[in-house]
């Protein structure tokens, strides 16, 4: 009986801890967003992070999308040829890339690159008293550190995903026409015929949400890091893991919202 109660207490403690963390993150996000409505706004900080995310993440996102499109076309061909459905490859590539792979893979790459960097930078600032220094210098740390990052990531991710979509489709087109022998015009016609506005819009909405989540988890983990270099390392890992899991979970939720009948 005692063992049963101990196990129950352990589960209860875990659940309470999870609820507390969820509440903390929600309040953190609400405070971060609320500073958008209250001046001053640190435009320089916003621009710095926007360029860091939208411009300097381009190579990694572009390469990921290009190769993903290429692999997708190749794999679809080997699979679909068993059913004589090779003509569906262009449709599969464009729908997969715009609805799912573009936003999800771009977000996972950005989570690894930007989420980790945000957690490390803010975490280092936390453990070296720079966050406290901001307060003593008449600057709200949330307003200065978190709000510009949230906005920058939310606006930059859709731009990255537009590029990822184009390059993902291009990758499929290159493999389809160069390696698999599709006629270029036919491949493009198949691509355009199947593509609807909602496919692109859903992907861009996902991108914006994923961007917000990456910045939120990076900022939150960094802001709450403790204990020197080890704490910053743990915060960085936690930021990437948490944002990756949230990206995949929210991907399902948004897909359900857009496409479930």
């Amino acid at each position: 009986m005692n063992r049963f109660l101990d196990a129950l207490a352990l589960i209860g403690r875990g659940l309470i801890g999870a609820c507390r963390t969820l509440g903390d993150v929600a309040i953190f996000a609400a405070v971060g967003v609320s500073h958008l409505l209250r001046p001053p706004f640190h435009f320089r900080q916003f621009w710095r992070h926007f360029v860091e995310i939208a411009y300097f993440s381009l190579p990694v996102v572009a390469l990921t999308a290009l190769f993903t499109g290429m692999v997708l076309a190749l794999q679809s061909f080997t699979g679909f040829s068993r059913f004589n459905a090779e003509s569906a490859i262009a449709s599969v590539v464009v729908l997969s890339v715009t609805r799912e792979l573009g936003p999800v893979l771009a977000a996972l790459m950005v989570a690894g690159r930007i989420g980790a960097a945000m957690a490390a930078e803010i975490g280092t600032m936390r453990v070296t008293d720079q966050v406290d220094a901001l307060t003593t210098l008449s600057t709200d740390p949330m307003k200065y550190l978190v709000t510009p990052r949230l906005l920058a990531a939310t606006l930059a991710m859709p731009l990255l995903v537009i590029v990822a979509n184009i390059l993902g489709v291009l990758g499929g087109f290159l493999i389809g026409t160069v390696k698999l022998g599709f006629v270029a015009q036919t491949y493009l016609d198949n691509t355009w015929d199947v593509l609807e506005v909602m496919d692109v819009v859903s992907g861009l909405v996902k991108a914006a949400v994923f961007g917000f989540v990456i910045a939120l988890m990076g900022s939150w983990c960094g802001y709450n890091s403790k204990g020197g270099a080890q704490g910053v390392g743990q915060a960085t890992t936690a930021a990437v893991v948490a944002s990756s899991i949230l990206i995949l979970a929210l991907d399902y939720v948004i897909t359900e919202a857009f496409f479930s009948r």
């Binding site: 930078e121 280092t124 070296t128 008293d129 720079q130 406290d132 220094a133 003593t136």
Partner: peptide, 13 residues
């Protein structure tokens, strides 16, 4: 109020 922190706490960026 002004404050001098033990390790300086200068902003690296």
């Amino acid at each position: 109020i002004g404050m001098l922190f033990q390790n300086g706490a200068l902003f690296d960026s």
